[in-house]
């Protein structure tokens, strides 16, 4: 069983993962990270306050960061204006 820890960073603050998760491949890690980001952004949208400055750092048991996702990169963001 290989455990990976998903830590949520927000500027200076960090929310540490107290449990870790058993994931088998880089693809599974990438997918889990993306789902995490989207789940949080989705819920925050309901409240009207979205923080794209969050970052998820995935570390292995030795503390090495194996994957990183900036929330801004978790969604395809569109601004600008829809034509009349």
């Amino acid at each position: 069983m290989t455990l990976y820890y998903f830590h949520l960073r927000d500027g200076e603050d960090i929310l540490l993962d107290p449990e870790g998760r058993d994931l088998g491949s880089m693809e599974a890690i990438r997918e889990a990270t993306l789902r995490e980001a989207r789940s949080i952004i989705s819920s925050d949208s309901l409240e009207g306050k979205v923080k794209l400055s969050y970052r998820l750092d995935v570390e292995d048991e030795s503390g090495k960061v194996v994957h990183r996702l900036q929330f801004e990169d978790a969604v395809s963001l569109q601004r600008g204006r829809v034509p009349e």
Binding site: L34, R38, S39, I41, S42, S43, S45, L46, E47, G48, V50, A74, V75, S76, L77, Q78, R79, G80, R81, V82
Partner: peptide
């Protein structure tokens, strides 16, 4: 209206879209 917009955006984000161009 605002509740409705947020609900739509929330659902779209699950699929990876954050489209703020609507009204």
């Amino acid at each position: 209206a605002i509740k409705g917009i947020r609900s739509i955006i929330s659902a779209e984000v699950e699929k990876g879209e954050l489209d703020l161009t609507g009204r």
